[in-house]
Design a protein around this nucleic acid. Structure first.
Lengths: 212, 212, 212, 212
DNA sequence: TATGAATGAGATTTCATTCAT
DNA sequence: AATGAATGAAATCTCATTCAT
């Protein structure tokens, strides 16, 4: 409080780590992912994390400056994975037929799988985000990049549409359905959901009525 | 943003309320809505609420059993308003032309307005929800009812489609775009968003390509 | 950490207090004075203070924002008392004889008494002071005011001397001897110390050799 | 400010030190002096010390049993230097004129220089001292020896005075003014301060009024 | 019906010291 | 002789809830 001098144990952002250190850090990240997913950001205790990682409080703060810092680190990893996937969105061109549909469906499958892996964590994002600029920015960048990538495909596939807004609507649909499915808020089989998303997307871009 | 009818907010001990008590309760509900919207569920302090309501801690617990109880009361009011709106969804029939489009767009406008009023509060829902069954149920019921109402319209309008899943996808899109627009995560004019949603919906149901 | 909103329980600086509150605050100030004096600033635990005041942690933070805040409050009280005393310094004029000596010696007696009452606390000041601007300022103001008051008397009594520096040297002597006597670092009777200080002061101002 | 002769700093296990070990120990003593001076005893982190000495925690505890042990080692060195100086106090005899004044003033200059070198460290002494017998003794011994040496000179120079108490008052003045000047609590040029101290001392011993 | 005061369990974070290599 | 990693006891502070009037 009174202290302004730099803290003793500076958390590892850039510190060189030996094998043992690497291991501990991974254990903490894994434990954090699990605990945040299980309890949510606020209910998660640093104590839960260190217990899950079989280490001590002191060690935790050797690697992360705070609970928030750990969350941010995990969030960044997850966000990076998702951005990578967004960049691999296939073209949505085609004659309005099913030419490229297969690729898009394959991509949606991968998206659902990724969301399945990270969904529990992602659901806690809003919980953590409140009142914090840094975290909000990561989330916003993620949505923005997703929309941007999709907008590029929309522009190419359906020149008559306003690409940014359309992409944004589709991203919202894709993300939110995954969220709800993951959260089991509605009993819908992922495969059925995928069909519908693909159909709605095709219809939106090419005016092709979906077939059940 | 401002609460008027204290529907759902049952006083702690089931007491009958005189005029003065009514007033205090409304002040607390209003204050709670504001404070939760501003800070989120966890960051909101009971102290903030009682200060905003110009009353005391003691009084707070005369009307609500806990902070969560207050949140639930507000959430129920908001959910009820939204369910009311969901039930007024117009038919989505038509010849695939724009016959009923006007009504749907009018409804979307109302939805956006309602979301504009309650959005800040709704965004904190996830924050509060984690780890709590009771609150989760209100949210789930809301989504379920929305989907159910929309599914009814879908069944009538596009018999070839799987109504539940389709409705679910559209609800996701409508809700999430509103969320993002409200949260200003993407700069899109509400009107433009409305156009796109209406078009995507029409395309999804009637295979009519959207026109910018 | 994430929180920027004002805290719930704002400490009492200006808050109106009822009788009970007044009592509690006084109990905390008394307890703090005792505990700081006994253990020093760093070794003193908030827990010690609340135990001594027969109250709880929560209550403590209702009245003081932090341990430092409590220290500052006590320090200000003590400083104010000492400044009051400084302002009552008698004139040091005289024919070089003992005309005004009596008054000065009476004042020194009062100073020693005051230092006797607050000395244990004052000794911890340096301990607390490190790295904190606010506290340093109070201490500096105290020394400055003491020197200023004494310089006024010196200017009148011995026009040939540089008043500020001389006053400063005398204040140093007065303060430090009291400190050492209080801390029992040297076994000297307060009365003997007083004689010497009075003699040195007279000699310094009027060139009158002291008589044992 | 920089430590050279590691007098007093006994290695933890009484080991004999090779050249490399000597070097490391000196680096730690130097670093400790700097860090304690900068931050004070409590705020100084062992981590700060090892960083400043470009070594590790493990190594630190190879040379010193604890943080306090390091402080004590440094304190002993400083105290020894000051005691050496105290023993070189010149005679304060004289005919009451300025015969020996020059020597005393030269000594004061050396004192000020020494205080200038070690003052930042000395100021933290009180900070560390609280609640610890061992450290307190070093400080007490230092003051005692200073007073003793000065008392010898007083006894010779002014037989009519009570030597111990008078010496004690003068030591207090000399020490405390140096402290304040060093801490820049009052803007006084060291040279002006020296003049005043010499004058007050002469007046106290020989009843010779000071001349500005 | 209202309120100021009090509570205390529990959370985060720090850091001197020890361990294993 | 040296070191990076780990430890865990202990400290400060928070805040939903209850109490006494």
């Amino acid at each position: 409080m009174t202290q302004t001098a730099p803290r003793g144990g500076v958390p590892t952002h850039g510190r060189e780590l030996r094998a043992r250190g690497q291991q501990t850090m991974v254990r903490l990240l894994d434990a954090g992912t699990r605990v945040f997913a299980d309890r949510g950001y606020h209910a998660a205790r640093v104590d839960d994390v260190v217990k899950a990682a079989r280490t001590s409080h002191g060690t935790f703060y050797l690697y992360f400056a705070s609970k928030e810092d750990l969350f941010r680190a995990i969030a960044q990893n997850v966000a990076a994975e998702m951005v990578d996937l967004a960049r691999e969105l296939p073209s949505l061109d085609g004659d309005g037929g099913r030419a490229d549909d297969g690729e898009f469906r394959a991509w949606l499958t991968r998206f659902q799988a990724l969301y399945g892996r990270h969904g529990d964590f992602l659901r806690t994002w809003t919980d953590a985000e409140i009142g914090d600029g840094d975290l909000g920015r990561i989330a916003q960048d993620l949505v923005t990049e997703f929309s941007r990538q999709l907008a590029i495909r929309v522009r190419a596939a359906a020149p008559g549409l306003e690409p940014r807004t359309t992409a944004f609507a589709l991203v919202s649909m894709i993300e939110r359905t995954s969220y709800y499915v993951q959260a089991r808020q509605l009993r819908v089989a992922p495969a059925a959901m995928l069909d519908v998303i693909a159909n709605v997307t095709r219809a939106a871009l090419h005016g092709q009525a979906a077939v059940a």
